[in-house]
Design a protein around this nucleic acid. Structure first.
Length: 299
DNA sequence: CTAGGATCCTGTCAGC
DNA sequence: TGCTGACAGGATCCTA
């Protein structure tokens, strides 16, 4: 799942259920999914760093949760709260074959499910959370970043596709495959544009678009059990309600009516409007007298 | 340092 | 039916 808005949704929702609760027992069903020695204790805070969630315990230890592609956190107590990668697990009997870790609290159980096992829970000392490799390298979130900073980073990685650069969490944190596509669409930037060809103004637009698209998603309530099950009992992804290009290939662009296309950029499925997002490939540094330089190099 | 590709893992779907 | 390859809301590691 889980890009920044989904993780923030998990954080806010989970807080209502486990803040102040006492973790009494940790059951690890998949060794790969839990790093370190299990710890217990009362939950004093739940924080988020980019796409990583950190559950702080009273005893000085913290549990860092990264959901990666298919992670979900499902709490079962007096009622159920489920968020993360949307799937039938939201409403299934748990544990099941995709349950990797169970955190048993005094008032309920928190299931960490993860189909692909890319996600994990890692035990850290609370005082050392910021030293953890992923968190330490994390760039600012879009709303904390200045356009000039993003522009500089795009320049430094000028020969990569713009989308590839903004997906890098050490460049800007929070965007994943969906919101990267959505932000590029809103800003009118083709995903495969060389990062170095973006102007400061375009970088600024892209930054504003990233803020807007993620704020909107958080407001929409993110990916939870609540909006996974429709009123008529059918299943639906909340993203379909407001996404403009993601998974919309073949459908029409809301702005110009052109068919949305799907291509591959940096190995990821990429959706865009070929009319609203033009591919202008300006060389980063135009080579002067290429023929002459080539001749000189040979000799 | 950057850029590109492989890799971790399970499940689903299209095509033969 | 069964097989095969492609692909998936992420990030790291390896090579050039």
């Amino acid at each position: 799942m889980p890009e920044l808005p989904e993780v923030e949704t998990v954080r806010r929702g989970l807080k209502g259920f486990i803040l102040g609760a006492k973790l009494k027992r940790v059951e690890v069903l998949c060794e790969k999914s839990f790093i370190g020695e299990p710890v217990c204790g009362r939950v004093v805070d739940i924080r988020r760093f980019g796409k990583a969630l950190v559950i702080d315990l009273e005893n000085g230890f913290s549990l860092m949760v990264h959901l990666r592609m298919t992670g979900q956190l499902i709490y079962d107590g007096a009622e159920r709260y489920a968020a993360g990668h949307p799937s039938e697990n939201f409403v299934s009997e748990l544990p099941n074959g995709q349950t990797r870790v169970i955190l048993k609290f005094d008032k309920g159980e928190l299931f960490f499910n993860d189909q692909r096992k890319f996600g994990f829970i890692k035990v850290l000392k609370t005082a050392e959370v910021r030293k953890e490799a992923f968190i330490r390298k994390l760039a600012k979130e879009p709303w904390e970043m200045k356009a000039e900073e993003l522009y500089d980073k795009l320049q430094r990685r000028g020969r990569s596709a713009a989308k590839v650069v903004i997906l890098d969490q050490t460049v800007i944190s929070g965007l994943g495959n969906i919101y990267a596509d959505e932000a590029l669409y809103l800003a009118g930037v083709h995903p495969a544009r060389k990062a170095g060809s973006l102007s400061l103004e375009e970088a600024s637009d892209l930054l504003a678009a990233a803020c807007r698209v993620m704020e909107k998603s958080i407001e929409a309530g993110g990916s939870t059990m609540r909006n996974y099950v429709q009123a008529d009992g059918s299943r639906g992804n909340y993203l379909d309600l407001f996404v403009k290009v993601y998974h919309r290939e073949g459908q029409l662009c809301e702005k110009c009516g052109t068919e949305i296309e799907k291509i591959r950029v940096g190995g990821r499925g990429t959706h865009f409007c070929p009319k609203c997002q033009k591919l202008i490939s300006t060389p980063v540094k135009p080579v002067e007298n290429p023929v002459e330089n080539f001749e000189r190099k040979k000799s």
